[in-house]
Design a protein around this nucleic acid. Structure first.
Length: 417
RNA sequence: GCGGAGUUGGUGAAGUGGUUAACACGGUAGAUUGUGGCUCUAUUAUGCGUGGGUUCGACUCCCACACUUCGCCCCA
């Protein structure tokens, strides 16, 4: 038997309904915030990710789906959304009017070659927001609260925004140096992973789960002490704004992000139940330049839709989402069926949600199907009545039966559903 | 890439080295000769993740692989 590739999933039934609900909700929500939808390719030139996400990140080094196409091009299936949007911004010169603050959102699948777990797939679905051309802290507050409010709007309650500031490049250099200096004498007490991180990516030692309870870790230098006066005042302003916007946040000076391009404010939406990140983001004021664009400050975040679905399923009532139609057309012989399929089309084109027997079922079975669909009306076709231009209609709530003229059936149903 | 647990019909699942793989839900047909939802009856896995091996005989024991799941790494 053929089976789906590891780490992928099929969406159907209740899960598909949930997905439809989430995407519809997102579209409405983003319209109110006046963000534009942007769609970029699912595969891009491999270099895009090496230059944006960074060669130090495992995501690029060993988790991408890479292939060489028939024309010899080095292609990578996108592992995240930001790089593609930035590339599109630069290539299409969307920044043409330098006064515009550009606000985009995307929704689509990403690909990472990693070990699947619950809510974590090789083909994952992400929603994300990117805003360009404003370094105003008001935008930071808008973007962070947007994600917060969207998660609330979707029905999630138990999550918190974890917030930190990484400052500019200089700040991080200074801080990294201080961190290494502090840790050097304690190196042998850290876990094996952290000893590697010490050389490769020292900042990531901050969110190590193994060593976090050690006293060395409690007394680490605080990155917030290394911020410039300007960064510090921006961070304070941001916190004030978030409080005013009723965003439930907490400062977490151990929060660092795995992707190279982040600077200044970074944050994660963390589920209180399992500590999993539902989404995360940050400012990236230098990425556009690094990818050969103009100097354009930017900020954005991504939400993991798979994890959101998982969290939503836990809190949503487990009862089945009821199927329902307005009318079910019952027919047995050939003449009734042919009449039925035309009637079904007329009703459907008039927005009457209609289903029809199309499977040689006995009349008894058709009643069962109509019940399982919670059909409001049963249209029980029979050849004798059809000859007189009449349709036998049964109101499935009152069980009342009536004969309606075929010329009036559409109007009758429209006014009674 | 590393470690733990699992994989039996459409679904939830029980089970034993030896002829017909329990039970329940769901499906189909009939009792009800074109008006159902209750009840009753019949029927519903030539197969127990895939491929090897041990054995007279394996769904049951052994090995490998695949997939699922939990954790690590990493990340949303």
């Amino acid at each position: 038997m053929l089976i789906k590739p590891k780490g992928t999933y099929d969406l159907y039934g209740l899960d598909a309904k949930l997905y439809e609900y989430i995407t519809a909700c997102i579209q409405d929500f983003m319209e109110d915030y006046h963000y534009e939808f942007i769609r970029t390719p699912i595969f891009e030139d491999r270099n895009l990710y090496h230059r944006s996400v960074g060669d130090a990140s495992d995501m690029v080094v060993k988790e991408t789906y890479d292939f060489i196409d028939r024309g010899g091009r080095n292609i990578t299936l996108r592992p995240e959304g930001t790089a593609g949007v930035v590339r599109a911004l630069i290539e299409n010169k969307l920044y043409g009017n330098r006064n515009d603050v550009l606000k985009y959102y995307y929704l689509g699948t990403m690909y990472r070659y990693e070990r699947p777990q619950a809510g974590r797939y090789r083909e994952l679905t992400q929603f994300g927001v990117e805003v360009f051309n404003s370094d105003d802290v008001l935008i930071d507050a808008e973007v962070i609260s947007l994600g917060y409010n969207l998660l609330k709007e979707l029905g999630l309650e138990n999550f918190t925004v974890h917030l930190n500031s990484l400052g500019d490049e200089k700040t991080r250099e200074n801080y990294t140096a201080a961190l290494k200096k502090y840790l050097k004498p304690h190196l042998k007490d850290l876990c094996a992973d952290c000893q590697t991180r010490y050389e490769k990516n020292p900042l990531r030692i901050l969110d190590c789960k193994v060593d976090k309870d050690q006293t060395i870790m409690q007394n680490l230098p605080n990155i917030l002490d290394y911020l410039s006066a300007e960064s510090k005042s921006k961070f304070n302003k941001l916190k004030e704004l978030l409080t005013m916007l009723d965003v439930d946040y907490e400062v977490d000076n151990h929060l660092v992000r795995g992707l190279d391009y982040y600077d200044y404010h970074v944050w994660e939406y963390i589920s209180d139940d399992d500590g999993l990140a539902l989404g995360a983001g940050g400012r990236y004021n230098t990425l556009v330049e690094k990818l050969d664009g103009p100097h354009l400050p930017a900020i954005g975040f991504g939400l993991g839709l798979d994890r959101i679905m998982l969290a939503l399923k836990k809190i949503l009532p487990t009862s089945e989402i009821p199927q329902n139609v307005d009318a079910y057309i019952m027919c047995v012989n050939e003449e009734e069926k042919i009449y039925g399929i035309k009637l079904a089309q007329d009703l459907r084109l008039n927005h009457v949600k209609t289903e029809i027997n199309s499977n040689n079922l006995s009349l008894k079975s058709q009643f069962k199907v109509a019940d399982s669909l919670n059909s409001k009306f049963l249209l029980i076709l029979n050849s004798e009545d059809l000859k007189k231009g009449l349709i036998n209609v049964k109101d499935n709530a009152t069980k009342e039966e009536m004969k309606i003229d075929e010329n009036e059936i559409v109007d009758f149903l429209i006014s009674n559903i």
